[in-house]
Design a protein around this nucleic acid. Structure first.
Ligand SMILES: Nc1nc2c(ncn2[C@H]2C[C@H](O)[C@@H](COP(=O)(O)OP(=O)(O)OP(=O)(O)O)O2)c(=O)[nH]1
Ligand SMILES: [Mg+2]
Ligand SMILES: [Mg+2]
Ligand SMILES: [Zn+2]
Length: 577
DNA sequence: GCCGTTTTCGGCCCGACTGTTTTCAGTCG
């Protein structure tokens, strides 16, 4: 044990998710949901599952009982799970991967495996092309053709998309639908409304008294390549870009309940519906109904659904069944940071290093956004690929910033700064004397991601020991949909950051969002404060801030937790020397 | 397998769309 690095929460969760999938394919009832619930709770846990196990608190995790706690201890001690191995051995090889194809669930997957010996997607395609699928019971010619189409789609379309990339597309479709005469209300829903970092599709809700008209207009929107399903209340299409869009249409009087349903998450919905059941009510997308009297309790407006269940309003960003319902009942939900409370941006690049716009251009856009300050944090010298600044050039830049500030009306301030590099040994690529003269020092890891967890943790701790370092930039180095975070003991880092007064960055670049929602929540629990920053390399990208704030909100943060919601004098007190 | 503002046993969210079926299972949201 001593020599192994701790198994990560996500790795433990992945094992439980696989158990859930295999149990589902076996046809076992209820257990899959039990395993899935436990996996979700562990994935969102603000501390290491290993520590929780050590302190014998496994049963405090919602969804973890005697049996799963035993499995967890086995995973932590051995890295594997015998139960999972036996499930795998029991079922045909590869069967669980078949369900990645749209239209193939656990039942069809096991049938294809057992009857035709299909092991892979390629096998499946061959079987369909050979016409061997249509004769299986429960299958037919259409199913066979649909399988072929779904396989092709799975090869070309991405499984998930960055929120920052899809949100503009979603807003445009929302506008088009809102412009229809037959539509009285529209809202984005699903994971987009919850502002999840990646989204599987675009979910949109519309209110109308003539749904057929709406569906017809929707199915023939420009860019629609395929209609997956079309009914009077629900239609799904795929754009030529591969993006799936689901539209739900309801009557105006059901809009609130429908929005509650369609916003999700699924787990949040299930938890809400359980609350309704406990009162002998039923909650669905049409409303909250008293089963005894048959009368509608709520449904016209979304907030009414929460009120009727004695819950405080829950912002969409929190609806993941991560304790928000319990907190809403107890009245202990945080006052989430607002999208309009940001006063400045503490990580901005310019033409001095790899940026596209000048200091003045960045400042002009920042002012237009209503900011009171931004910190110019170009790279330092060791980052050659980013045209990093030498100490001399940086000194020139500081003088330039002073010059611009001197000509300003005092309502806006440029802060000098750097995004310096944390070397392999934790040293910073600028001398202390230079750092001391800067207003804001962001320090980030830009290379050497393959270090051991111990080395990386020590490396960042060493950097934080430098009294000039104000902020750790993109603290885990992850790139969404492409690069895993580097291994680092975040609990130790957060503890040190809180003690030293170093801010953790929530980098708002759509492909980063680093710290993540879950990590930010964990850091807040350790007493850490944050900088939510755009890391803009061009003026338009100052608008990335929205995604950083969304991540902060999903991490349960308040304005007080975030340094750049403070006016400049207060910010200056928060920053170190 | 988990869990309890009615329960320690008996439930487990609820509905739309499709294709295969002749009354509904499977899949998905
Ligand atoms: N009650 C209930 N609601 C569901 C279920 N599945 C989906 N929903 C609701 C909540 C979801 O947020 C919403 C949209 O479904 P999606 O499959 O698109 O999920 P979502 O957008 O949350 O995540 P995504 O990023 O698309 O994977 O529909 C379910 O099984 N039960
Ligand atoms: Mg969705
Ligand atoms: Mg959807
Ligand atoms: Zn940067």
């Amino acid at each position: 044990m001593e020599n192994h690095s701790k198994v990560a929460n996500v790795e433990v969760a992945a094992i439980l998710y696989e158990v859930a999938r295999l149990l589902e394919i076996k046809g076992v009832r209820f257990k899959p949901q039990a395993y899935r619930r436990a996996a979700q709770a562990i994935e969102a846990l603000p501390e290491s599952i290993v520590d929780v196990a050590q302190e014998e608190r496994l049963n405090d995790i919602p969804g973890v009982g005697k049996a799963i706690a035993g499995h967890l201890r086995e995973i932590i001690e051995t890295g594997g799970l015998e139960y999972l191995a036996s499930l795998r051995a029991e079922l045909p090889d590869g069967v669980q991967h078949l369900t990645r194809i749209e239209g193939i669930g656990p039942k069809k997957a096991i049938a294809l495996s057992r009857e035709l010996g299909v092991r892979t997607i390629d096998d499946l395609e061959a079987a369909a092309l050979a016409g061997r699928i249509r004769d299986l019971p429960g299958f037919g010619e259409k199913t066979e053709a649909n399988i072929l189409t779904s396989i092709r789609m799975s090869r070309t379309a991405e499984a998930r998309h960055l929120l920052g990339k899809i949100l503009p597309v979603a807003r445009e479709i929302e506008q088009r639908l809102a412009a229809l005469a037959s539509v009285s209300r529209v809202s984005l829903a699903g994971s987009i409304r919850r502002r999840k970092e990646t989204v599987g599709d675009v979910d949109i809700l519309a209110a109308s008294s003539s749904p057929e008209e709406v569906m017809e207009a929707f199915a023939t929107l420009p860019g629609v390549e395929r209609v997956l399903a079309r009914g009077t209340t629900k239609t799904s299409v795929v754009l030529s870009t591969g993006t799936q869009i689901d539209l739900r249409v309801v009557e105006e009087r059901h809009f609130g309940a429908a929005l509650q349903y369609f916003t999700g998450s699924k787990e949040h919905n299930i938890a809400m519906r359980r609350l309704a059941i406990a009162r002998n009510w039923r909650l669905n997308e049409y409303g909250l109904t008293d089963l005894e009297t048959g009368r509608a309790v709520a449904g016209e407006d979304e907030a009414g659904v929460y009120r009727a269940l004695d819950l405080a309003w829950i912002e969409p960003e929190l609806r993941e069944d991560r304790g928000e319902i319990e907190a809403a009942r107890a009245g202990t939900l945080p006052d989430l940071v607002g999208y309009d409370t940001i006063r400045g941006d503490l990580h901005v690049h310019t033409t001095w290093s790899e940026g596209v716009h000048s200091i003045e251009e960045m400042a002009e856009t920042a002012r237009a956004l209503g900011y009171e300050y931004i910190a110019i944090c170009d790279h330092a010298e060791s980052l050659h690929i980013a045209r990093g600044l030498s100490p001399e050039r940086l000194a020139d830049q500081v003088r330039e910033i002073e010059r611009i500030n001197a000509g300003s009306d005092g309502t806006f301030t440029l802060l000098s700064g750097t995004e310096c590099n944390i070397g392999m040994d934790g040293t910073i690529d600028l001398p202390d004397s230079v750092l001391a003269d800067l207003d804001v020092v962001v320090a980030s890891v830009h290379s050497g991601f393959k270090q051991s967890e111990e080395e990386m943790t020590e490396r960042v701790l060493t950097a934080m020991q430098n009294e000039h370092v104000d902020i750790i930039g993109h603290p885990t180095g992850r790139i969404l949909l492409s690069r895993e975070p580097y291994r680092i003991d975040l609990a130790t880092v957060f503890e040190a950051a809180a003690a030293l007064g170093v801010l953790m960055e929530i980098n708002a670049v759509p492909g980063r969002l680093d710290l993540s929602d879950i990590n930010a929540r964990s850091a807040r629990g350790a007493g850490v404060r944050f900088s939510v920053a755009s890391d803009a390399h061009r003026r338009e990208n100052l608008r990335f801030m929205e995604f950083g704030v969304a991540t902060a909100r999903r991490g349960w943060l308040s304005a007080d937790d975030i340094a750049n919601t403070r006016p400049l004098p207060e910010l200056q007190k928060i920053l170190r020397s």
